[in-house]
Amino acid sequence: MRIDFSIFGLYLAIIGSSMFYTLFVMWGVTEVVELDGIAYWVVAGIVFLIISVCGLRFYVPRLRDLW
């Protein structure tokens, strides 16, 4: 099985940007709801997964021609 590293880099870029957007979403969530300890990390993980899946589902097919 051959790995196309240019597409692999695209996936890494989407995941990296998902981490960046998760920071802003979590900042907004903590301004509205008080989250401590494990609850914060659970919500952050769920938000990250949602943003990552949406990014991988919708952005990768559009960016393949540009990358």
Score class of each variant (00 low, 15 high):
I38R: 15
F20S: 11
V32N: 07
G16K: 04
S52N: 04
T22W: 01
A13Y: 07
Y59G: 04
I7G: 12
M26R: 08
V43M: 02
Y59I: 08
T22R: 00
G28W: 09
G37P: 00
P61L: 12
M1T: 11
F58N: 02
G16R: 04
V60R: 08
F8L: 13
V33R: 05
R2A: 13
I50Q: 01
V53R: 02
V53N: 05
Y11M: 15
L10C: 15
V29C: 07
G16D: 14
E34N: 04
M1F: 15
I14L: 11
R57N: 12
F48K: 00
V47H: 03
D65C: 10
G37Y: 03
G45I: 05
L10H: 09
F48I: 04
E34L: 06
I15V: 14
G37K: 01
A39G: 08
F58M: 08
L23H: 03
L10A: 13
M26S: 00
A44P: 10
G45P: 15
I46Y: 03
A13C: 14
E31C: 14
D65M: 15
S18C: 06
L63A: 09
D4W: 14
A39F: 09
Y21A: 05
W41L: 14
D65A: 14
E34F: 09
V29Q: 05
Y40D: 04
D36Y: 12
F8S: 11
D36C: 00
L63M: 07
G37M: 06
P61E: 07
V33C: 02
T22Q: 00
W41K: 13
G9T: 14
V29P: 10
I14N: 08
F24E: 05
S17L: 12
R57I: 06
I14Y: 09
D36G: 02
F58Y: 13
V33I: 10
M26H: 08
L35C: 01
I14F: 09
G37E: 04
V33Q: 05
V60K: 12
G28Q: 11
G9V: 10
L12S: 13
Y40C: 01
D36V: 05
Y11P: 10
E34V: 07
L56T: 09
A39Q: 06
L35S: 01
